[in-house]
Every structure is written in C-alpha cells, then in structure tokens.
Amino acid sequence: MIRKTILCTVAVLLLLSCGGSGDYDMEKPAIDMSGASAFPLTCDTVYRGESFTFGALFTDNRELGNYNIEIHNNFDHHSHSTDNTPCAPDERKAPVNPFIYNRDFRIPAGTVSLEVRNSIPVPEDVDTGDYHFMIRLTDRAGWQQLKAVSIKVRERETGAGVRLVSPDGAAKALSASERDGDGSVM
C-alpha cells in the first residue's frame, strides 16, 4: 500500500511540475541615455528661471508602464550618482528653498518604445547647488528601472562676466562654471 502511495505521489508531482511554464514578462524596462538628445547626464547643469528638456529613450519587451521624474537636493551629499565617476560636489549647505520636483507621467497603453521629451521648469527662487535627478520607469508587469543622475542648478551667467547671484559664494561658483565650461548644456 505504501509503495503504491509513493508511486501515485511521484506521478502527481511530476504532472504538476509540467503544467507550470507560463507566458509572463521577466524583463525589466530600459532607460537609454546614450542618444544625442539624452539630457541630463552626470554633472550637467540646469539654470534657474529657465526650462530644460528631459530626453531619454524608454523601451520594454512587452509594454511600458509609467514613469516618474523626481529632483531633490543633494546639499548633504547623501548618495551616489549611478555613474562610477562622480562629479565634484559643491560645499555642503543647509537647504533654504530647495528645488523639489516630483511628477508622475503616464505612458499610453500598448507602448513598447518611447522617445521621451519633457520640458521641466526650474523656478527662479530655488537654491542653487547639487541636485539629484531621478528617473524611475515601470513596465506593465511591475518591473522597475532606476536611473539617478547628479546635476547642478546654477544661475545663468549674463553677458561675458562672471556675475553670480547665488548665495554660496563667488569662488566656488567660479570653479563650478569652469567645470561646466564648454557650454555643452542645452
């Protein structure tokens, strides 16, 4: 009797194991920032009082979900950017009126590939300095991809001179402007 029971149990388990392979999504979506219009990249600068255009290519094997763009200050230098070569941070400081941006974007159903361009306004009165630009992307199945980029918010230099309105001191701002020197931004 016991031997028969074992045989039956093995048979049932084998049957069950065969029935399992389902058709379901096992791939994460992808954030591609290698295109010509991809912005911002690590150490890129955006200017207060102006808008910049976030550009990236989102792809998924099945169907994209939604995405979120979030910008928060990194005045306390709390975390890395996603790149192995972090850009030199400004000095630490306490936030007075930090730029907070947090917006969810919907992607139309059935989209597998999306060239994203979003205009993001930077208010005129926000603190300048180090910020994190976070991109979060889901697909329909709930997989998520993240990308974190270290950016800087600066005051646009008017004219040829180095006139800075930011409260954090001219010397530092000057070195920052040297880093951004070639004007690759925007």
Partner: peptide, 12 residues
C-alpha cells in the same frame, strides 16, 4: 504585495 506600474509621490 503586488508591484504595479503606477507611481505615487515618486515611488512605485
């Protein structure tokens, strides 16, 4: 706890 494609307050 099911992860959805939705975002709220910047988080999945």
């Amino acid at each position: 706890m099911n992860p959805t494609p939705e975002y709220l307050e910047g988080l999945q």
